[in-house]
Each structure stands twice: as structure tokens, then as C-alpha cells.
Amino acid sequence: MAKIKLAKSKVEKLVEICKSFDNKGSELINVLHKAQETFGYLPAEVQETIARELNVSVAHVYGVVTFYSFFSMVPKGEFPISICMGTACYVRGAEKVLEEFKRQLNVPVGETTEDGKFSISCLRCVGACGLAPVVTVGERVYGRVSAGDVADIIKEYQK
């Protein structure tokens, strides 16, 4: 296992999470869910610690983390932006909206701006197809978004 670079309190929290699932290797996905909920993302050190606690290989943990798009190894931004790529949103121009966010923030999908403010991700259907295309920023939902609205949305959070 790698040298743990996490703060002691974080390691303790992880140990506690693993323990709440009886340190069972078969509970790996649940443990990862909880860990991501706690830390916001799953950096290598967190995966190393979980592997050690559950007595599974780090390669296995990493395999699971990279298989599910829900799990992320990069911290999300302070304001996580999600663009819906479900069928309804897609046919009504979600891709152009996504391209505009990528262009204006200068980050690809799945990454976070250097100042840590914004991250971009895609999701599949938020159940608001009548508002397509839909964008969410944190908990807030924006409907009928066009590429022209992107600058205004970003501006709201840059204050």
C-alpha cells in the first residue's frame, strides 16, 4: 500500500466507513459510495486505504472505481455543472450547450476548472424532459437552455 498522504482524521473516517460494512470485500461498492459522499471524490489515497481495510487489492478497487461513471477520482467544483444528454435534451441541442460550457470554462467533461469553482459532467435524464435541454448547477435546475444562456449562467456563480 502506498504511503497514506491523507490527514489522520480522514483515514479514521474511512476506517469507520469500512467498519460499518464489516470490512467485507463484497461491500466495496457501498463503501465507495459512502466514501465519495464523505470526501466528494475518490483520490488514490482513499482507494488505497479502502483496499487495505477491506483486504482487497488496490487494482481491484481502482477497477471498480473506473468502471462506474458515478465514481470520480477528481474533485468536483464548488459549483458542479451537469448537462443532460438524455434523448429529449440531446435532440433539442444539449450538445451545443455542452460545447459552450466546455469552451467558456476551458475544461473537458469530467474535470474541474483550475480555480476549483466549476466542474462539468454529463448525465442521463433528470426527469424534466419538458424543460429540455436541461442543465443543473448544484441543486438548481435550468430549463430550455441555449448556448446563448451559458455565459449568464456562469456569471451568476462568479460573483
Binding site: 488514490a44 482507494q47 487489492s57 488496490v58 487494482a59 481491484h60 478497487v61 481502482y62 477497477g63 473506473t66 468502471f67
Partner: peptide, 15 residues
Amino acid sequence: SAVNRGFQSVVAPAF
């Protein structure tokens, strides 16, 4: 371990 998925999937060491 197998990592990633779809066309990107490959057998690799951790990280």
C-alpha cells in the same frame, strides 16, 4: 485488474 469500460477497458495495475 480490468479497468475502465467499453472500448477503453484494459487490464492494468492500480491507477
